[in-house]
Amino acid sequence: MRRFKLQVQMSVDGYMAGPNGEMDWLTCPWTDDINAYLDALTEPVDRIVLGRKLAEGFIPAWAAGPEGEDQASIDKMNNTPKVVISDSLAESPWENATVMGGDLTKIVAELTSGPGGDLITYGGATLAQRLIAANLLDELHLLVNPVALGSGLPVFADTGAHQKLHLVAARQFDCGITALHLEPKRP
């Protein structure tokens, strides 16, 4: 069965962005050890799942070949098919991306039930929160940056109940970021 993973950067106080979506707090330079971790995380992935708001910046940014990124990462991001979760888009304005709307649980069941590699989402905030609240993720890879924001868009919001998670691994990288690999404890 395909695994559905979340990878998100966050502050130590649990925010993935500032109150207005600011990302200027992401100042840790990537080091070789975190690059290797992320390469291993995305290697089995054959589909990227994004929320509409994130897709609007994410897809064009990777298509432009962001400065400082290695070509293999650029190719992986551009060549991997994407699914954009949106109830406001009827069709995709991007190459190599399809739009799915409606019941999130049914969408995830459809995406994970077929053959293929793993799926990964990077959010945005609304999609990540909805996936966590509905317990639809198999793995959470939280990249905890050594900064506190005080307020912003939380990773965990409106979960509706306590969610028990199992810590699979924790790893600190040379850049100061710590990765927490968590999996939901399911009955």
Rank of each mutant, 00 (worst) to 15 (best):
S88K: 09
Q9F: 15
V144H: 07
P146C: 05
V8E: 11
R3G: 07
P184C: 04
V84T: 05
Y15T: 03
A169P: 13
H181G: 05
L131S: 04
S86R: 04
V168A: 14
V8M: 12
T42R: 04
G14R: 08
D13Q: 03
T80E: 10
G152Q: 07
P154N: 03
T31F: 08
L153Q: 15
F156K: 00
S113G: 15
I48Q: 11
D158W: 01
G123L: 04
I48V: 11
P184F: 11
V49W: 03
C28I: 02
K82H: 08
V12Y: 11
T121M: 03
V84M: 03
A125R: 10
A90H: 13
V45Y: 07
G150T: 02
V83N: 00
M10W: 11
I120N: 00
G65I: 02
A97G: 11
A170D: 06
L41Y: 08
G114I: 00
G101F: 12
E56G: 09
A128S: 14
D138Q: 01
Q7M: 14
A55L: 01
R47I: 03
Q172W: 06
L50N: 07
H162T: 12
A128K: 03
D75K: 12
A169Y: 01
A133T: 03
A55Y: 12
G65E: 00
A97Q: 03
S11N: 10
R2I: 08
D174I: 06
I59F: 06
P187G: 04
R130I: 02
R186G: 03
P93R: 05
V168S: 11
C28T: 10
A128Q: 02
L26F: 15
Q71G: 10
L180Y: 11
A133P: 08
T159C: 13
L104P: 00
D87G: 14
A17D: 11
Q163P: 02
H141Q: 15
G65H: 09
A63P: 06
N145W: 15
A133Q: 06
G117V: 07
P60K: 02
R186I: 13
I48Y: 05
T105E: 15
A109D: 15
P29R: 05
W62D: 01
D39R: 13
D103V: 04
T178V: 15
Q7C: 15
S86P: 05
G102Y: 06
D46P: 14
L153D: 04
K53W: 09
D70K: 13
V155T: 09
I59N: 09
I48H: 03
H166D: 15
R186P: 02
G21C: 01
A72T: 12
T27G: 07
L26S: 07
P146A: 12
I120W: 08
E43H: 12
A109I: 02
N78C: 12
I177L: 10
A36F: 11
I132L: 08
